[in-house]
Amino acid sequence: MLVSAAVCPCPPLLVPEVAAGAAPELDAARAACAEALGVLAAARPDRLVVVGTADGPGREAYPEGATGSFRGFGVAAEVVLGARAESGATGPATDPERGATGGLPVSLAVGAWLLEQVCWAAAPVSGLGVGETSGTQECVTAGREIAAVSDRVALLVMGDASACRTVKAPGYLDERAAGFDTEAARLLAAADVPGLLALDAGLARELRAAGRAPWQVLAGAAGGAGLAGELLYEDAPYGVGYLVAVWS
């Protein structure tokens, strides 16, 4: 059963090495993410699942100890998902040639970095990557499966809102982006499961809102859990919507 969730953005620039400096404009986002992880730990989960967008279609699971790096962004920074893997571990999650971050997709690598910053030790950790094109029902199914894994499951949900807030944004300016982000922030603040499930996947793709699928996995996991939400951070540095919220 889902007992708590944290929603965080996943720009690699959260990692100071990638940002080639502290990137102080993201200090408030980093602080909000740390606060959200504190809420997860306080819920005393017996399992934490980090959910984010995958590099390809469909779903892919990553075990505790899966590794990633930010070599694809020009730095040698490496991360490990939870405890370090046993020596000799194999599989896609530890393949150093897989993707821009090594084994983990970018979103999960950033999630692993956030967990390292707070020295996460509250519960075992695993990861799930979901394709950005995954349909709502596929996301709901994934969420329900996660919630059924243990009696006290927590989620760290990694995903950005739109990338079209300004002319300098990765997706250029789209007048629909601000409204989409405002609605997403409202739904996450209210822990509105039906509202999240009603998000338009096509519009989210057009606005390059990578968080849509992970948010809908959260909605699938939270059905019937009766959680309340709180928005901790909302801003759009670099023209990309970043949201931090907690459900508990």
Rank of each mutant, 00 (worst) to 15 (best):
M1A: 14
L2N: 07
V7A: 01
V7M: 04
V7C: 04
C10L: 11
C10G: 07
P11M: 11
P12Q: 13
A20T: 07
A22L: 13
P24V: 09
P24T: 10
L26N: 07
L26D: 09
A29D: 04
A29H: 04
A31L: 13
A32L: 11
A34L: 12
E35Y: 02
A36G: 11
L37D: 11
V39F: 07
L40I: 12
A41S: 14
A42W: 09
V49D: 02
V51P: 07
G52M: 09
E64Y: 00
E64A: 09
G65L: 05
G65A: 06
G65Q: 02
T67W: 06
T67E: 12
T67H: 07
R71V: 11
R71P: 01
V75H: 10
A77N: 06
E78F: 09
V79R: 06
V79K: 00
L81A: 07
E86L: 12
S87V: 12
G91D: 05
G91A: 04
P92G: 14
P92K: 05
A93H: 04
A93Q: 01
A93C: 00
T94W: 08
T94V: 15
T94R: 12
E97Y: 03
E97L: 10
R98H: 11
A100F: 07
T101M: 03
G103H: 01
G103C: 08
G103D: 09
L104A: 05
L104Q: 04
S107Y: 03
L108Q: 03
L108E: 04
A109Q: 13
A109W: 09
G111D: 08
L115S: 12
E116K: 12
A122K: 12
A123T: 04
V125K: 04
V125F: 10
G129L: 13
G129E: 12
V130L: 12
G131M: 03
G131L: 00
E132S: 14
S134D: 10
T136H: 06
E138K: 00
V140H: 00
V140S: 03
T141K: 10
A142C: 14
A142G: 13
R144C: 09
E145Q: 15
E145L: 13
E145W: 05
A147H: 09
A147F: 05
A148K: 04
V149N: 11
S150A: 15
S150G: 15
V153P: 09
A154R: 14
M158G: 01
M158D: 01
M158R: 06
D160Q: 09
D160P: 02
A161G: 15
A161P: 01
A163K: 08
T166K: 04
A169M: 03
A169F: 12
A169Y: 12
L173I: 00
G179C: 10
T182C: 13
T182E: 15
A184Q: 13
A185F: 08
R186G: 00
R186Y: 04
L187P: 07
L188G: 00
A189F: 06
A190Y: 06
A191L: 03
D192P: 05
V193W: 00
L196D: 04
A198W: 03
D200M: 00
D200W: 05
R205T: 08
R205V: 00
A210L: 00
R212H: 06
A213E: 02
P214Y: 01
W215S: 03
A219V: 08
G220C: 08
G220S: 05
G220D: 03
G224E: 11
L227Y: 08
A228C: 10
A228D: 15
G229A: 10
E230K: 15
Y233H: 15
D235T: 07
A236W: 13
P237K: 10
Y238I: 01
V246T: 15
